[in-house]
Computed example of a mutant assay.
Amino acid sequence: MTEKITMADIARMAGVTKSTVSRYFNGGSIKEETREKIQTVIRKHNYEPNTFARLKARESNVIGVVVPTLNSKVTSRVVTSIGRYLRNQGYAALIKDSDHNSELEFRNIRRLMGRNVDGILCSAISVTEELRRLIQSSPVPVVVLAQEFEDGIAVMVDDYGAGRFMGRYVGERVRGRVAYLGVDERDAAVGIWRKQGVMDGLKERGIRDVITFLGDYSYQSGQDMMKQVLRQGKVDAVICATDRLAFGAYRVLGSHGISIPDQVSVAAFGGYDESELLHPQLTTLRFDSYALGYLGAETLLKEIRKEPVPKKQIVGYQLIEGGSVRKLAEEL
């Protein structure tokens, strides 16, 4: 547990001045011997500096993090990874949630720019022209996560490649109509590129009879879209843009007595731990969200230190093969 001590207490116990302790927390130049004395006191008392007080310094050692929502397993993995990396590097994270609202996202970034953070990680909802101009005019480095950003630095997942992989995977195992439960295209990565990958992958396997629906990221939206699917007649498979949408689809299919995968195959993206609790276990693609957060934070600190970084970096994904998609004949 963090002990309630002040910077003055640290200075007294380390045998240095309070201004020296302040320089330590703000990234200033001090002797290595002095640094070790201060670190020894900090570790002994589990001291954590006041983040908002540090924001008044010229170099705050605080990184702004803007995320579309906190109600997401993927986002929680990304934020956890960012926090771990930054703490190990002597930085703190100041997190702002945009609640899937592009205007609020824009305001959150502007506020962080005015609070003297050293840099910003933005898990963007979408890269609008307004957001593009804001980032380009930023007084501090900005790294965009999870979206393509040709005019700056981006760390992203391969949404198109993952979608194509899943489209091919499902397309090899079904022969009838497929339904796709997607999200608003304002989120280009998931709403456009992931969906396009699925469509292309299905076409490569000869599946052209596809009906698509758009909703939001909620469990309720998954249920609503699945009900719309059933009103349009029989489908052989349902591919969901996220695991949470698949949870809703499972609920509706179960309430209608429709067996998974005997009557309908279901697949999704996300790799949520809860997917393993479904019966049958959900077949899903898990993105390396921890790598996304780690790589984003590492890239931003390199930018702050004026070190060279790639303009675009892509993290991978992994198939978690549950029992929700019909097996190939040769697998039976």
Rank of each mutant, 00 (worst) to 15 (best):
Y250K: 01
L214V: 13
A246D: 02
E331G: 10
R208G: 14
V238L: 14
Y290G: 15
N46E: 14
S138Q: 08
Q263L: 07
Y219L: 15
S102G: 09
D159C: 08
P141I: 07
A237M: 04
R186C: 11
G167V: 04
V144Q: 11
M199P: 04
V309Q: 04
S102P: 01
V142A: 03
G90H: 06
F25S: 07
L295M: 05
K302L: 05
V62C: 13
R111L: 15
L121K: 05
R231K: 11
L301H: 07
S137D: 15
L214T: 13
G323L: 04
A329R: 15
Q318Y: 09
G206M: 05
L278P: 08
I260S: 00
A268G: 10
E185N: 09
R244V: 15
F213P: 00
A124M: 00
V174L: 05
R326L: 08
I304M: 14
Y47G: 03
A146M: 13
I320F: 09
A329N: 10
D97W: 01
V210A: 00
R58H: 03
I42S: 00
F149Y: 15
Q313N: 15
R208V: 12
S265A: 10
K4C: 10
D243E: 02
R186V: 14
I260P: 05
L112M: 09
S289A: 15
S123G: 08
L277H: 12
L181R: 02
R12K: 14
E172W: 06
S275G: 15
I207C: 01
G271D: 03
R173Q: 11
V142H: 03
L253H: 07
L285Q: 02
L214K: 11
L277C: 11
D159E: 09
L214Y: 08
E303N: 04
R186Q: 13
A124H: 08
A124F: 00
F165P: 02
L134E: 07
D184S: 13
K227D: 09
W193S: 09
R286D: 11
R173E: 06
L332Y: 10
V178G: 00
T34A: 06
E129F: 03
Y290M: 13
Q232I: 03
K31L: 11
R205Q: 14
G161I: 14
G15E: 06
D236K: 03
K327N: 13
S60W: 02
Y24S: 09
K312T: 12
K4Q: 11
K195Q: 12
L295E: 13
N71Q: 12
R84E: 09
S265F: 01
L94S: 06
H279M: 14
Y250W: 02
I38A: 02
K31I: 01
R133H: 15
L328T: 06
A268F: 08
R132S: 13
S72V: 03
R107V: 07
N101M: 09
I314Q: 05
L285T: 03
Q232F: 02
